[in-house]
Every structure is written in C-alpha cells, then in structure tokens.
C-alpha cells in the first residue's frame, strides 16, 4: 500500500496534485483558522517552540506569536480549564492533548464544564473549544500512548466527537471543528498522520459537514462501518474480499457524535449485513451502540446479526504484541464470513 489513506480512483486520476500528509493538512487547517480568525488560540504542551511532538503546530508560534500558540505549564486540567475561561471571554481555544492517555487529567473539566456550560447557562455561555487528541495504536508506542478513548467522549452529552480518516477530512473537519460554536473532541488517528493523499493545500477540497458519514465504497454483499484509523484497514479488507466473491461497502462515520443514522441505515438496508470495525475495545465500545442503532432501525432488512470487530477487552498491549490486538484484514474477513451466508446458518 502506498499511502495510509489512499482512496482508490480519486487519487489515481489526480496525478498533478501534490501528495500531502495528514499531519501537514492538520497544520494547514490550524494556520488557516488562525489567520482568518484572530480569536483562535492554540494551547498545549510543547506546541510552541517545538511545534508539538507530532509537529502538528509547527511554525504557528513563529507566525502568530507565543500568545496565539502557547506552551502552557504541564497540566492538562489546567490547560482545558483555562481554555474554558478564555472561551468565556470570547476566544476560540484549540487545545492539544499530547496523547490520548494524557488527556485523562482533563476529564473533569471536559465533562463537568466543557460539555455542560451551554446547557447550564441555557445557551448564554457556549464554549467553542476544540480539543485535539492524537489517539489509537499502531505506531509502536509504549504503554499509555495508544489508547482508543472515543467511547468515554461519546458517552458525554454536549460534546461533538469526530475523527478524520483522510487528508481532505483532516483539513476540512478541523476547520469545521474550530468554527463550531460547540465543543468538539477532535480525535486524530496518529497512525494516519504520515499517510499521504493527493490534496492541494492551496485549493482544499470541500468536505461533508460534521455529523455526516461518507460512503467510501459502495458494495452489495455487506457493509463495513468504521472510522478513523480503521478506515484504511476496512478498505483493504474490501479489496481482499473480492477474491472471496464478496462485494463489501465501507462507511466512514467521521463523526461519532452527532451520529449519522441515515447514511448508515441506508447502506445496511441495501446490503442486509453489517460489521462494525474499530480499535477501541468491544465491550462498552462504540460498536455496541452502532449495532444497537442498526438493529433498532433496520431489523427487517437484516440477514444476520450485526457483528463487531474490535480491539480485545484488554489494556492496550505492548508494542511488540499490538498487531495481535488491532483489527486486521483477516479478522474482518472472518467476521464477514460469519454473516450467515448459507440458509440455516
């Protein structure tokens, strides 16, 4: 595979367009947002001089000044808590959490204030805060560097929870998140940071709004429903499935909250079979909610129970064992094989 997020024909035909990594597109999105709106402030650990440990904020402090892209003291609750105050005063803070597991100290601020302030003040005090969280595994990180924390966020009303899987979405969705008047948890699949797509920073392709899922591949046999780091895996699985005679569709959710029941259900109704794929653990994970929603809405169209291919229900494993944990092509195809293809299965 040449790129992390290669999406087939669109890429192949656009030879002239430059190859851009997701990390660059995210950087560009921050830069464009900051240039366009002086109320956008970036804050986090090492985001200034260093440009962030993943370099997503590279060059922002130099271009806009330390007061716009600020190296904060090392305290996640403090970062998010002060961002709340900044948003109260009319700024639009974009907070970088250094890694998924290091966002946990900020949970109280996120859940008790960021998610609820609009509601607590009956609309008087919305908090337009974007919390960027590099998440997920597959990068050989030692412990506490590979968590899939989306289920925690999803379970909190008041937050939008989104995750791009393509370079175009990384740019477009981050711009939308920053422009949103609601708080957005912006989950960045860190193993896709360096994956490149044909994408022109001078002329960024428009993307669907937050809240819309996108059908990345139409299929007739069954639908894979996924997001973020698992999208390329699902596309690869769909490709491999052709050899088995299956024509698999792939839905990229993009947004976990709000959830696009409409697009998901339209696809599942057509195929009658669905597998939800994510890295997050299966028990209490997003897949359970998604399977339940599909079952409630599409029961009479289903030929088989909705299956889940998820990370195991274990603490994220050490890097040398992570490949056994992460949902891969084979595990996805095995699940597709269990979708009761024979009458009486």
């Amino acid at each position: 595979m040449t790129t992390g997020t290669s999406l087939g024909t669109a890429v192949d035909s656009a030879v002239a367009v430059q190859q851009t990594a997701m990390a660059q597109a995210l950087n560009r999105a921050l830069r464009d947002s900051m240039a366009e709106d002086p109320s956008v402030h970036v804050l986090g650990e090492d985001v200034g001089t260093l440009g962030g440990v993943f370099r997503i904020t590279d060059g922002l402090a130099a271009e806009f000044g330390d007061h716009r892209c600020t190296d904060t003291p090392l305290a996640e609750a403090g970062i998010l808590g002060t961002a709340v105050g900044m948003a109260m005063y009319g700024l639009r803070p974009v907070v970088e959490m250094q890694f998924d597991a290091f966002a946990y100290p900020a949970f109280e601020q996120l859940i008790s204030h960021v998610a609820k302030m609009r509601n607590r003040t009956r609309g008087a005090m919305p908090l337009p805060i974007t919390v960027r969280v590099p998440y997920g595994g597959g990068i050989g990180g030692v412990e506490h560097h590979s968590d899939s924390s989306e289920a925690y966020y999803m379970a909190t009303p008041g937050l939008h929870v989104v995750t791009p899987a393509t370079v175009a979405d990384a740019y477009g969705m981050l711009r939308q998140a920053i422009a949103s008047d609601d708080p957005v948890v912006f989950l960045e699949p860190k193993r896709l940071y360096w994956g490149k797509d044909a994408w022109d920073p001078q002329d960024p392709a428009p993307v669907e709004p937050i809240g819309k899922a996108v059908v990345r591949r139409t299929g007739r046999s069954a639908t894979l429903i996924t997001y973020g780091p698992s999208l390329p895996v699902c596309l690869e699985a769909a490709e491999a499935a052709r050899a088995e005679g299956w024509d698999l569709g792939v839905v990229d959710l993009r947004s976990l909250v709000p959830f696009d029941d409409e697009t998901v259900c339209a696809e599942v109704r057509r195929t009658g079979r669905a597998v939800v794929v994510h890295e997050s653990g299966g028990f209490g994970g997003p897949g359970g909610e998604i399977a339940a929603r599909i079952t409630e809405r599409c029961f009479h169209h289903l030929e088989a129970p909705v299956l889940r291919v998820a990370g195991f229900d274990i603490p994220y494993p050490p890097p040398m064992a992570e490949r056994h944990h992460l949902p891969g092509v084979d595990r996805i195809l095995d699940a597709v094989g269990r979708l009761q293809w024979e009458a009486g299965d």
Binding site: G78, G85, M86, L91, P93, Q109, S112
Partner: peptide
C-alpha cells in the same frame, strides 16, 4: 453570566479557578 459578569455557581470543587485564570488571561491579551 454576562449580565453581571458572574460565572455560574461551581459545584465541582476548585474547577472554577482555572476558568478565572483563562478569562483574566484572555482579557489581558
């Protein structure tokens, strides 16, 4: 809260303190 510049009464202990810092910082900026 904007009518008299009074933040909501905060129940989770101490969580209102970083808000005060962020707001004062933003105003200063």
């Amino acid at each position: 809260p904007y009518a008299h510049r009074v933040a909501p009464l905060s129940t989770p202990l101490a969580t209102q303190l970083p808000h005060a810092v962020g707001l004062a910082h933003a105003a200063r900026l």
